[in-house]
Amino acid sequence: MKSNFLRGMRDGIPIALGYLSVSFGFGILAVQSGLSVFQASAISASNLTSAGQIAGVGVIAAGGTLLEMILVQLVINIRYSLMALSLSQKLDKRFTTPHRLLASYGITDEIFAVCSAQKGVIVPAYMYGMILIAMIGWVLGTFLGASAGEILPEAVSSAMGIVLYGMFLAIIIPPSRRKKSVLFVTLIAALLSIVFKYVLTMISGGFAVIICAIAAAGLGALLFPVTDEEEEAGE
């Protein structure tokens, strides 16, 4: 039991290091949006997700409605449902309902990716080890970014504002290069997003992301339905 926990922590170290620097950017962004250091850290500790948190901070900063917040989180984080669904087929018998309820908290893109790549079944202790170290990295980075954002020179903290967007580009560009379908979806989403930003300005940012994402992904699904081989390859 203990060794599984430690193995999970070891496999989670690269995730934690990545989270540490990326969440630093989130911490700065949150403080720039008017949140306190404690609020920024609380968001990271309770959400453990990047894109959803940034969009959520945007809704808070703009004084959006709770319905907008719910829809924004639903659309941006709905991908976790698919990951959770996929992981649920790979769980050991020891994963009883209480364990599932607890481990659900830690299903992120990176933890999902590492757990999926494991051979055989996944035991609770392994997942807990990975989630714990990843969470420490994510919350600590947020705390440091939010705190240092106030101390750091303006030139440094403003340059950190691009970190998370850089990471997003690193997620979407390689598959866009390899697959026309993904390239199509990302270009349509970007194009629509520009239209909302500069033309349809009466639509708030959160709803704009939802509409862009649903339209682009829906169009992609109609024109380029996935094949079974693609899904097995995990692309």
Partner: peptide
């Protein structure tokens, strides 16, 4: 639905990044 769910992350990240970056 499976295709839609597969494309959603890319669409979300792209819309969030462009033009905000």
């Amino acid at each position: 639905v499976r295709s839609f769910l597969k494309y959603i992350p890319y669409a979300v990240l792209s819309a969030m990044t462009i033009p905000a970056i």
